[in-house]
Amino acid sequence: MTHIPNAGQSAIIEELAEVIVANKAWLSEIDGKIGDGDHGSNMAKGFGKAAERIHGKDMSLDAAMLVLSDVLMGEIGGSMGPLYGLMFEEMAGALKGRDDIDADAFSAMLHAGLAGVQGVGNAKVGDKTLIDTLVPAVAAFDAAKGRGFAAALTEMEAAAERGRDSTIDLVARIGRSSRLGERSRGVLDAGATSCCLILTSLGASFRKRLS
């Protein structure tokens, strides 16, 4: 298949929430090394709450993303609340009104999400943030789009993982861990890690529905 319907796909966000909640302890552990160790609990709280609100409702993917965005921006706060909140708000905006989501729509969604993050944060590739995951993942999807939707998703997921791992050798230049300078080198960035979970979960959910 080359596309999935937009309607009735809120389970994709529930699946995403499941992944985030399952990785709560890991995310907090990573965050604890160079942050304050609350990334996992804040993410799990936000995504978990959104999943509860979505559960059992027959929603389009963009509507479910808006529920998630509202929870993150209205109830979670921190740095991740606005960053992911705006990312999902912009992603939802790119899907709104579409009956089907094909590779072009998915690409538009990724670009909108990236623009949302960049609209509120100032990070660039190499700053040891979620941008190090998101930017190469979006580029990899676009580059592989010609080989089919599912193949592009696989490439996106792989690039997201490489992007996440690239943060190990980076020195943080933005956010709380940037205060550590050289001491931030040698560990994963928690935001890059959660962003990778988001992209690989979305990728897997889409691939499952495409096959």
Binding site: D36, D38, N42, M73, G74, E75, I76, G77, G78, S79, G81, P82
Partner: peptide, 12 residues
Amino acid sequence: VGEIFSSPTAKS
């Protein structure tokens, strides 16, 4: 008011 050691929401 934010969560422990975490910024309040924009809405707050």
